[in-house]
């Protein structure tokens, strides 16, 4: 035994010098075990802690370092990323124009055929939106970093944080519709949970029937994330192409009411489940998010111009 061991060791030494290896032959198992244990305890700490986990302060400290770096890099990259747009040919623009015209005509006919009920509801909706909107203002921000699909969660970083008056659980939207809600903030950045994340639930209301339900991210791979709408009233059947808006929560947190979310593309009901399910296609293109607005209480102190409910800049 001892002889054998000595032999292999000496052979090893010769072999190492021959091949000029610069790492020890036997890596320490203890280090691996220590690092794995450290990772596992970090997972346990964060998982058990939930919202007030001890990892949260570390997260915001790391965020304070990486946030400005991400904002800076995004600002440098933005003009470069726009370059392919300059080289688009006349033909492709013309094709896009005709496609948009066709879509416009289709939308117009849709609006025209939806009738009296629809118009009446739209008026009500407009009224509630206006009433709810009083007392809210928008902080404009740009998306600077996007979480990868490998992380299996859909989150983005925006370049406005607590200095701009943003707090957790505020609504984020853009000019197409609802984007998500603020999860956490640092001084200069905020992390936003997109509504297409599987962990996101939004109270939704079907525009055509005022039926209420819950919207959940389906977690599909890709930019065109879809949402599942589950209606509270099982007798309700949402119509195809119906618009879904947010239902809103008390005090506008995390979602203010009346923000358009998406359009019903498919409806199905199962016998086992007690409610109707509909598939919603969001209005927002999550593959090309850039300028967004965060809904803040009116009169919030901010380090940038705030768009008030009546459209004025402050």
């Amino acid at each position: 035994m001892r002889l054998d061991g000595g032999f292999s060791r000496s052979r090893e030494r010769r072999w190492r010098s021959l091949h000029d290896l610069d790492v020890p032959r036997r890596p320490s198992r203890a280090l691996l075990v220590a690092l794995v244990l450290a990772s596992v305890s970090l997972i346990t700490l964060d998982h058990q802690g939930g919202a007030d986990s001890p990892v949260e302060p570390v997260r915001s400290a790391v965020g304070a370092v990486f946030g400005p770096l991400e904002s800076g890099t995004a600002a440098v990259i933005r003009p470069i990323a726009a370059i392919p747009g300059w080289f688009r040919s006349h033909d492709s623009l013309r094709a896009e124009l005709s496609a948009l015209e066709a879509e416009n005509a289709e939308l117009r006919s849709e609006v025209a055929t939806s009738g009296y009920d629809r118009n009446r509801l739209e008026e009500y909706d407009g009224l509630t939106v206006a009433a709810e909107n009083l007392g809210f203002a928008l902080v404009p921000a740009r998306v600077v970093a996007v979480g990868s699909s490998q992380a299996f969660s859909r989150t983005v970083t925006i370049d406005a944080g607590s200095d701009a008056g943003i707090r957790p659980d505020q609504t984020v939207l853009n000019n197409d519709g609802l984007v998500g809600r603020v999860l956490r903030t640092t001084r200069t950045t905020a992390t936003v949970l997109l509504i297409i994340d599987t962990g996101s639930t939004v109270g939704g209301r079907v525009g055509g029937s005022m039926a209420m339900g819950f919207l959940e991210g389906r977690g599909d791979v890709g930019d065109s994330g879809l949402l599942d709408l589950e209606l509270v009233d099982r007798a309700e059947v949402p119509a195809k192409h119906d618009v879904v808006v947010t239902w809103g929560s008390d005090g506008g947190a995390p979602y203010v009411s009346g923000v358009p979310v998406g359009r019903v593309t498919n409806v199905f009901s199962s016998i086992r489940e007690t409610s109707q399910r509909a598939v919603i296609e969001p209005f927002v293109d999550f593959g090309a998010l850039d300028l967004v607005g965060v809904v803040v209480p009116s009169g919030t102190r901010s380090d940038r111009a705030v768009i008030e409910a009546d459209g004025s800049l402050r």
């Binding site: 990772s39 964060d46 790391v62 991400e70 979480g147 992380a151 970083t157 950045t189 949970l193």
Partner: peptide
């Protein structure tokens, strides 16, 4: 891994990328 777990857009349970990359 810890940096990937904690830097801004990340929202998953911290330590998962750390374990994977170790």
């Amino acid at each position: 891994g810890v940096a990937l777990d904690l830097a801004p857009p990340a929202d998953h349970v911290a330590g998962r990328w750390a374990l994977a990359l170790v």
